Simulated scan of single mutants.
Amino acid sequence: MQRQGSIGGSAAIRIRVTGGVLLVAHLAFVAWLTLRPLDVPWVMPANLRPFDGIRADLALGRPEAARRIGERLALLAPLGVLLPLVGGRLGVSRLGSLARTVAAGTLLSLGIELLQTGVPGQVVDVDSLLLNPLGVALAHLAVVPAGRSWLRRRNEHRAPAAVPREESFQGRTPTIPRVGIAPWSDALPPSSP
C-alpha cells in the first residue's frame, strides 16, 4: 500500500533504495572518521563552552578558520538530503520536513559527541552540536524543496489517463452490501412472566 503523498512506481523504489544505501555508506564514513581511536601524543581539552571553538578557529586566520568550520558544517550535511530521500514523501510540509531532518541530525551529532568521550584521541566539542545540524539544515534547504517540486511536476506530467469505469475492475476490491441491524426485539432474549 502506498502512503499518501509518496513517490509511486518502481522508479521510486530505486530512488529510496539508492538513498538508503548512500545513507548507510555516509553514516559508516562518519563513524569511521569521528569514532576511531587516534594515536596522538597530546590532546586538547574538551570544549564545553558554546562558541569558544569557533572563536579559536576564527583567531587562526581566514583560510584555516574557513576550513575548520566548513569541516564541521559538511560532516553531517548529506543527511539533509539523504533522510528525506529515504522517506520518499512528496506531499509533506516544508517546515515539518526541515524540522524532522534537523532533529535527526542533531540527535546523531549528540550521539557522536557522547561516544567520543570514550574514544582515545578524539575531543568532544560542543560547537559541533551547533555546526553539524546547521550544515544539515543548509543542505536540506538548498536541495530538498527544489527536488520535491521537480518530482511533483514530473509525476503530474506522467499521470496516466483516466481508465473508463467498465475496464477498471482489475485490481479492485470486491464490496459486500451492508447488512442492516436487527430490531431490538430479535436481539433481546425472551422475557419471562
Rank of each mutant, 00 (worst) to 15 (best):
R152K: 15
I181M: 08
V40D: 05
V24L: 10
E156N: 15
I13N: 13
G19D: 05
G171L: 03
P190Y: 09
A46L: 14
V163D: 11
L95W: 12
T34P: 06
S6H: 08
T106I: 00
Q116D: 01
G180H: 04
G70L: 15
I13L: 10
V126L: 12
L76M: 11
G19T: 08
V24M: 08
T101L: 09
S149H: 10
A104Y: 04
A12K: 10
P160A: 15
L35D: 07
V143N: 06
V43C: 06
S128G: 15
R3P: 01
A59L: 08
G91N: 04
L33P: 00
L115W: 04
E64W: 05
Q2I: 08
V123K: 08
L73M: 06
L38I: 01
T175E: 00
L33Q: 07
R154T: 11
H157F: 03
P193T: 13
L110I: 14
A31P: 14
R55S: 03
I54W: 06
A182G: 02
L38M: 11
R68C: 00
L27M: 00
L129V: 14
P45A: 14
R14K: 11
D52N: 04
Q116W: 10
D127G: 01
A99W: 10
L130T: 03
G80C: 01
A11S: 11
I54L: 03
E64D: 10
D57E: 12
S128Q: 13
G20W: 01
I69A: 09
R3T: 05
A187E: 03
L188G: 01
R68I: 08
G147E: 00
L83Q: 02
L107C: 15
L85S: 01
A28T: 09
A137D: 06
R165M: 01
R72P: 05
N155K: 12
I176M: 09
E71G: 05
L108E: 04
V126W: 04
A187S: 14
R16E: 07
A28I: 10
L22S: 00
T106C: 06
R153E: 02
V123S: 04
P50H: 02
A25W: 11
D127K: 09
N155S: 10
G53K: 08
W184H: 14
S93L: 11
A25N: 06
G180K: 07
L130A: 09
T175W: 03
A74K: 01
P84V: 02
H140Q: 15
L114C: 12
L75R: 00
P120S: 10
V119L: 05
L114F: 15
D186E: 13
S109R: 10
G5F: 10
A11K: 15
R158S: 13
P41R: 05
I7P: 03
G5C: 11
R152Q: 14
I54N: 05
A182L: 07
I69G: 03
R148V: 13
T106V: 01
N47T: 08
S192K: 09
A104T: 12
Q170K: 02
